[in-house]
């Protein structure tokens, strides 16, 4: 019952927040200096036929997209549609009623897969590194690992993307070690989406920061756990430190990692806006950027909506997961 109440409360606040996000986006797209129609006018407005066509089109758009409605009505109507997972047509193809839904269905998996792969990298590398650093506390290894993870956390993913490509494509290959190296993994995907190899590089670039975050988190929580009585007892019984960690300290240390996952996953999903262009991925990020460039309002709204909603739902999911793993945590 309490869980249900919690869920309803959180979902309610998510809906309100998203409504505001959508409303803000609608409002912003209204004040943009050169909107879709001015662009059209520049393109076709030269002769009578073009102008008549534009007039017709404008009229048609008014009806299809309810352009004359006040903001609240537009937002409300949008939400009614969203409930049915139907985002309507885009400006570019007003005739295709489910165009945006198709686009979202095609592009959301791309972004999510890269983000999940990044998270996978973060967990696979971050956890051992963190444990290792904690065991060798205050040694040079600890310092190195902490500093490197700092770099991973601070340097933005697009710079990492460029540096990674530079490293593999230029240096590795120029020194002739590249022949046996699986180069196609590192090739920026002209193959387009479809081959899982294309996930590797973007996931590495996006996963660096989460890896660093996970490693630091694990390190400090393992240190904390090591100080606790039951671990001390175990050590004094003569068990090896590593054994103790694996048997006793790891599980409680892993729990807080879940809390890192939320913000990090959202970071990777929104970060796709800047990284996808570099890797030529056709995900939500590039959808958003292109839509903004073309001033395709319905598309901008929907891509903003999906990105924001995904981020919020992930945070909710992480909170729930957290309380499942550690029942002491109350949902509130």
């Amino acid at each position: 019952m309490r869980v249900l109440k919690f869920l309803l409360k959180r979902l309610g606040s998510i809906v309100v927040s998203i409504a505001c996000v959508v409303a803000i986006t609608f409002a912003m797209m209204r004040v943009v200096p050169s909107d879709y129609f001015t662009q059209l006018e520049l393109r076709y407005g030269a002769n009578t036929a073009g102008k008549q066509m534009l007039d017709l089109q404008r009229q048609e758009y008014r009806e299809i997209f309810h352009l004359d409605d006040p903001l609240w009505k537009q937002v409300g109507r949008y939400f009614v549609r969203v409930m049915k997972w139907d985002f309507g047509p885009s400006y570019k193809e007003p005739g295709e009623a489910h165009k945006i839904t198709e686009l979202v269905n095609a592009k959301l998996p791309v972004t999510l897969t890269v983000a999940c792969a990044g998270m996978g990298i973060a967990l696979v590398f971050g956890i051992p590194l963190g444990i290792f650093a904690a065991l060798r506390r205050n040694s040079w290894i600890d310092y190195t690992l902490t500093s490197v993870s700092m770099v991973g956390q601070v340097v933005p993913p697009y710079v990492l993307a460029v540096l990674l490509t530079l490293f593999f494509a230029v240096f590795v290959r120029n020194f002739q070690i590249g022949d046996s190296f699986p180069l196609e993994w590192l090739a920026l995907p002209s193959e387009g989406w479809g081959s899982w190899k294309n996930v590797v590089m973007p996931a590495l670039a996006l996963g660096a920061a989460p890896t660093a975050a996970v490693a630091r988190y694990i390190r400090s929580s393992v240190l904390e756990t090591l100080e606790q009585d039951f671990v001390r007892t175990a050590v004094s019984k003569g068990l090896g430190r590593l054994q103790v960690i694996v048997r006793h300290a790891l599980r409680p240390s892993l729990i807080p990692v879940v809390t890192v996952m939320g913000p990090q996953l959202s970071y990777m999903i929104v970060g796709s806006v800047l990284v996808e262009d570099i890797f030529r991925l056709q995900g939500l990020g590039s959808l958003f950027v292109n839509a903004v460039n073309e001033r395709d309002v319905p598309l901008v709204i929907t891509s903003t909506f999906i990105l924001a909603a995904t981020v919020m739902l992930i945070n909710l999911a992480v909170d729930i997961l957290y309380s499942v793993i550690d029942p002491r945590i109350e949902l509130k």
Binding site: R173, E184, L188, S190, E191
Partner: peptide, 18 residues
Amino acid sequence: IKAGGLMSQMQNYQSGAL
């Protein structure tokens, strides 16, 4: 016929994808 970045064509040629 594979669409993709013009920037990445050389790498894909070398890896055999193009």
